[in-house]
């Protein structure tokens, strides 16, 4: 164990002693200075989560959230110096966090919020022109094998809970008291331009978009969506993707390298 490992471990565990060998520049007590630093590290991590998971925080209250976030920060410290994207493991942590078991939808709300964080920082890719897609209509027989590349910011979250309504109600859209948390909803997260959007979509549309995102061609993705047997509006789903500038590439062979 190197001194650096000792230092890192002691930073996240308040029961660890101050690492040996520390010296303060002005001769003050290193143990006390270390405690200040330790406190600020944890506060910074908790604040970063509080910024990214605002609805999750509102759902449980600030005190509960900060305690949960601190427990997560100690168990799963950041693996990247980019703190803006910290929290990938947080939804899974919430799902297994016994004190939050009374709110079964909390983890999915957190998943949705993390997808927004990822979408916010995702790369910008220019959408394909509608003329380019229209040109593919000339080769009707090739359409089923046509692959569609989608924006890096795009994600689909299929939840057993009303994540979109819950999230929206916390942003002033809709009446929170009218939201039934147990109603399954599918969320489409993407960033057309500068704003991250959360859009509630039918479950079959979610299956379709997720299949496209996995690289399956148009025909196969549509088949999978229809196989759900709950009704699938292909034109509306494609129209939404085009409206939101979500289609970034056309792969005529269906092969996406």
């Amino acid at each position: 164990m190197s001194a650096r490992d000792d230092f890192a471990r002691a930073l996240l565990d308040p029961d660890q002693p101050c690492p040996a060998g520390l010296v303060a520049w002005n001769g003050s007590d290193p143990a006390r200075r270390f405690q200040v630093y330790r406190n600020n590290v944890l506060v910074a991590l908790v604040d970063a989560l509080a910024d990214g998971f605002m609805v999750t925080r509102e759902l449980v209250g600030d005190a509960f959230f900060r305690a949960m976030a601190a427990a997560h920060a100690r168990a799963h410290p950041p693996r990247s110096p980019v703190l803006a994207c910290y929290g990938a493991d947080f939804p899974g942590f919430i799902a297994r966090f016994p004190p939050a078991a009374g709110l079964p939808y909390l983890a999915d709300v957190a998943r949705l919020e993390y997808l927004r964080v990822v979408a916010c920082h995702a790369a910008d890719v220019a959408p394909v022109s509608q003329a380019a897609l229209a040109a593919r209509l000339a080769d009707e027989a090739g359409l089923p094998a046509l692959g569609l590349g989608l924006q890096p910011s795009l994600a689909v979250l299929s939840s057993r809970f009303a994540v979109v309504s819950l999230w929206a109600a916390h942003h002033g859209v809709g009446d929170l008291a009218a939201v039934l948390p147990e109603a399954a909803e599918t969320a489409l997260v993407l960033r057309p331009g500068l704003e991250v959007e959360v859009i509630g979509i039918p479950p079959a549309s979610g299956v379709f978009i997720a299949a496209l995102q996995s690289g399956r061609p148009l025909g196969q993705a549509a088949d999978e969506a229809m196989a759900l047997g709950v009704g699938f509006d292909l034109a509306a789903t494609l129209g939404l993707l085009l409206q939101k500038s979500a289609v970034t590439a056309l792969h005529p062979s269906g092969s996406i390298s």
């Binding site: 229209a134 209509l137 549509a222 292909l234 034109a235 789903t237 494609l238 129209g239």
Partner: peptide, 10 residues
């Protein structure tokens, strides 16, 4: 048909 409709929607 669907692609054509989607294009007009969008």
């Amino acid at each position: 048909l669907a692609v054509g409709a989607a294009l007009s929607l969008a």
